[in-house]
Simulated assay, not measured.
Amino acid sequence: MTTAEAPAWLQITVTTPRAALAEAVFEEHGADAVTVLDAGDDLVAEEAPHAQPDFDAARVVGLFTHGTPAEPILAVLRDVLGDDVSAATETLANQDWAGAWLSQHPPLRFGERLWIAPHSAPVDADEDAVVVRLDPGLAFGTGTHATTALCLEWLARTDLAGRRVLDYGCGSGILAIAAARLGAASVTAVDIDDQAVRATRDNAARNGVADAVATPPMDAIEHGPFDIVLANILAQPLIDLAPTLHALTAPGGDLLLSGLLTRQREAVSAAYIATGFTLAGDAHRDDWVRLDARRPAG
């Protein structure tokens, strides 16, 4: 297949100080990938070596399947961010996107020893470091998104030995693979998108944990309930899934809810408290929130 014949993508780039809102708009309109870049240059901004991105003005890049109409997305962006929002659209060849992603994403560290890095990137890490290699694919999840980073930070500081983990809405499989590499006893990853499940299987194999990450159909989850359930989705699906995730979380187990904005925290919290969870804490990055819930042991 020649470059001209390669699959193309719609790319929408927004420059804004309200990156989380732009990300939310892209996700709600079915973006296959979302990346946040420093508005000042082409590299992910870092306050310190290998730190997570944190900057005032950002370029938020959404990648959509070719043929996705841009104008409805731009209209919502203008409504949410204001009429003066700076937005640009272009058609991007598959190879061009992959190359751009690799050039813009250095290895990132979470906690003391967990790293997420492209396959070709050198990582200056200690011998006991856990390095998850992940290149861009059609499934969402590369570690740069705030909601994914919040979950990775929790996994990196948690003792997973002997614990059964469920990644509900696995996307690229990044959380499931990280959990397996960090020593979880078993990991199950599910998604409603067959493409995401295929990406998870491929990425698990490339990270040497194919046998450790099960990918059953979503309606045939086995080995539950689970000691840890990760749900990095969006606010409304999280609310709708409260009874389902309650049943999948073992008594005394932990549930991580991510993918919600600060203004959605109260509604999501209420849905899970109503099913019997207690809130053990939360974490914030920009306008994004991760809720840490626990199902009582009794």
Rank of each mutant, 00 (worst) to 15 (best):
T2R: 13
T2V: 07
A6I: 01
A6V: 03
W9I: 03
R18A: 14
D38T: 03
A39H: 00
G40Y: 01
P49I: 00
F55C: 10
A57R: 08
A57K: 04
V60Y: 01
V60A: 01
F64T: 03
H66C: 10
G67C: 09
T68P: 10
P69C: 12
P69H: 08
A75V: 01
G82I: 05
D83H: 01
D84W: 05
V85W: 03
A88F: 12
T89S: 13
E90C: 10
L92Q: 11
Q95W: 13
W97Q: 00
G99F: 08
Q104Y: 07
G111H: 04
G111V: 03
R113K: 15
H119N: 15
A121N: 09
D124E: 15
D126H: 10
V130A: 05
V132M: 07
R133A: 05
L138I: 12
T144R: 01
A146D: 15
T148N: 08
W154D: 13
D159I: 08
L160D: 09
A161L: 14
L166G: 06
G173R: 03
L182D: 04
A196I: 09
A205D: 06
R206H: 09
V209T: 00
D219L: 08
H223L: 14
D227P: 10
A235M: 13
Q236N: 14
A242Y: 02
A242I: 05
L248A: 09
G252D: 08
L257G: 04
G259R: 10
L261R: 15
R265P: 04
A267P: 04
A271V: 02
T278H: 11
A293K: 01
A297F: 12
G298C: 13
